[in-house]
Amino acid sequence: MLYVKVKTEDGEELVLEVEGMTEDEIREELAKAGFKIEEIEVYEVEP
């Protein structure tokens, strides 16, 4: 499983499960949803 931890400019932290997306695609999708991203951390969790 691939997850991203996202910190927004307003200090909110989100953890999202993503599969088959690049970091650029993740940033693009979050921007479309109205999030202003300060930091993204991508990590993989073994089942």
Rank of each mutant, 00 (worst) to 15 (best):
K7A: 04
E39Q: 12
I26D: 00
L30K: 00
T8P: 02
M21W: 06
F35N: 02
V45N: 09
E23S: 07
G34M: 02
P47E: 07
L2P: 02
V45D: 08
G34E: 02
K7Q: 06
R27Q: 03
V42F: 15
V4T: 00
E25Q: 10
V15R: 06
A33W: 14
V4D: 01
G20W: 14
V4P: 00
V42D: 02
T22L: 04
E19A: 12
I37N: 07
L14Y: 10
V18S: 02
V6G: 02
I26L: 07
E13G: 03
V6T: 01
L14R: 05
L2W: 14
E13M: 12
I40M: 10
D10C: 12
A33H: 13
L2T: 09
V18D: 00
P47G: 10
V18T: 04
T22C: 04
I40Y: 08
F35T: 01
E19P: 05
L30I: 05
Y3W: 14
I37Y: 10
I40E: 01
E12Y: 13
G34V: 01
V15M: 11
K7F: 10
V15L: 12
T8W: 06
E13P: 03
D10M: 07
M21Q: 06
E9S: 13
A33M: 15
G11A: 03
E46G: 11
E38H: 11
K32I: 07
E38V: 15
E19V: 14
E41C: 08
E44S: 10
F35R: 00
E23A: 13
V4R: 00
D10N: 11
V4N: 00
T8A: 03
E25P: 00
K32G: 04
K7V: 10
A33V: 07
E46T: 09
A33P: 01
R27M: 07
E28K: 12
T22F: 04
P47Y: 09
K32D: 03
A33Q: 15
E23K: 09
T8R: 07
D24Y: 09
E9N: 12
K7N: 04
G11H: 02
I40Q: 01
Y3D: 01
E25S: 05
E19F: 15
G11N: 03
V4L: 03
E46H: 12
L14M: 11
K7S: 05
L16G: 01
V45G: 09
Y43W: 13
V6N: 00
E38K: 14
G11E: 01
I37S: 06
K32C: 08
G20F: 11
E28L: 09
P47I: 11
E23R: 12
G34L: 02
E28M: 11
P47A: 07
E44H: 13
T22K: 03
I37K: 05
M21N: 05
I26K: 00
Y3N: 04
E41F: 15
E17W: 15
E39T: 14
Y43R: 04
R27I: 09
I26W: 09
M1E: 03
V6D: 00
E12M: 14
I40A: 03
V45C: 06
R27C: 05
K32T: 04
V42E: 03
E39D: 13
Y3T: 08
G20H: 07
E13A: 04
E25Y: 03
E41A: 10
G11L: 02
G20K: 06
V18K: 03
F35Y: 12
E46L: 13
D24G: 09
T22A: 03
G20C: 05
E17Q: 13
L16R: 02
K36A: 07
E38P: 02
E28N: 08
V15F: 13
F35H: 04
F35S: 01
E23D: 05
E39W: 15
M21D: 02
G11C: 09
R27T: 03
V15Y: 12
E9W: 08
E12F: 15
L16S: 01
L30R: 00
L30N: 00
E28P: 01
T22M: 03
Y43A: 04
Y43I: 08
L14P: 00
